[in-house]
Design a protein around this nucleic acid. Structure first.
Length: 281
DNA sequence: AACCCCTACAACCGCGCGCGG
DNA sequence: TCCGCGCGCGGTTGTAGGGGT
């Protein structure tokens, strides 16, 4: 077993980035743009692995990164998105403009999971804990804190299976993405019928959504997007989602209703607006 | 003052997916 | 169809710094 390292480690810098390295990377990307990460370090004059460069840029140097404290609104949204999406940090981050998946993941592990536990909520399942909240004394060392991320016994309906989220970069801008649900918890369809996006239901927030089967992963696929993106892009809905099928509109409606409930649409219409705004970024 | 423990978060790692040859 | 590469993701580790004893 064992996978070859992404690049030769010999002679490459590791650990914290120096201001000089940051400057080199930033300057290179400003001139040549992102991408080609593997060859970028050499061309930028950096003794770093391409992966490390990508991470540094994505999580720290990008000009649109919002540094600073997570606001209570963001905090709340993260919790509710997590209850729906699980540990899909990149997907959650996509709904929080300027925030990175790494930042949200760290914030979750250090703040929110603890906060939820103290509130008597299981941070993995978002169910009520039967046991009393963990006391501060008797806490184990650092390594233990990440135990929360390991396999869950969750059986809640619609909990996403912990599998990869697919980006639809060819059709839809970066902030739109898909998630896949476990077929054990939601009805998957293999019908050949094309599904009509229920745009009418969500027009006021300029969003479209839909569900399709994801046979490869044994699940179904949900996507959220912005209808003007689909209109403005040359690709049609069918071109983007040619594999989207359903014969179970009840399931679709239920899924979407739950999504809206999680956003507390009725109680916080402004928040949905800001959510919709975030999709524009 | 010195030591220890804990927190926060930057960085690394391994893996899987998509795409092009 | 297969294979290798590039990329992105989630999980994990490393470490600086702060607070308590």
């Amino acid at each position: 077993m064992g996978r070859a390292p992404c690049c030769s480690k010999v002679g490459l810098h590791r650990g914290p980035w120096t201001p000089r390295e940051d400057a080199l990377l930033t300057k290179y990307i400003q001139t040549h743009g992102e991408g080609q990460w593997r060859s970028l370090p050499k061309r930028a004059g950096l003794l770093r692995c391409g992966k490390s460069c990508r991470l540094r840029w994505m999580n720290y140097l990008r000009p649109d990164i919002k540094r600073g404290n997570i606001t209570p609104e963001e905090d709340d949204l993260i919790v509710r998105m997590h209850s729906l999406l699980g540990n899909r940090w990149s997907l959650i981050a996509g709904r929080l403009p300027g925030r990175t998946d790494n930042e949200i993941k760290n914030y979750w592990n250090t703040h929110l999971s603890k906060k939820l536990r103290n509130q008597g909520t299981d941070p993995k399942t978002h169910d009520k804990l039967t046991e009393a909240p963990e006391k501060k004394k008797g806490k184990k060392k650092n390594k233990q804190k990440n135990e929360n991320n390991k396999g869950s016994e969750k059986t809640l309906v619609y909990l996403p299976k912990p599998i990869r989220v697919k980006a639809l970069s060819s059709c839809i801008p970066r902030t739109d993405s898909t998630l896949t649900l476990n077929s054990n918890s939601a009805t998957a369809s293999t019908s050949e019928e094309k599904v009509q996006s229920p745009e009418a239901e969500v027009k006021e927030v300029n969003m479209v959504w839909g569900v399709g089967d994801d046979a490869d992963n044994g699940g179904i696929e949900i996507f959220f997007g912005e209808d003007h993106d689909l209109v403005n892009n040359t690709a049609s809905y069918e071109e983007c989602y040619s594999d989207v099928h359903t014969d179970d509109h009840g399931t679709l409606e239920k899924l979407y209703e739950e999504y809206l409930q999680l956003l507390n649409v009725e109680e916080k219409p402004d928040e949905l607006d800001s959510f919709a705004q975030s999709l524009l970024v």
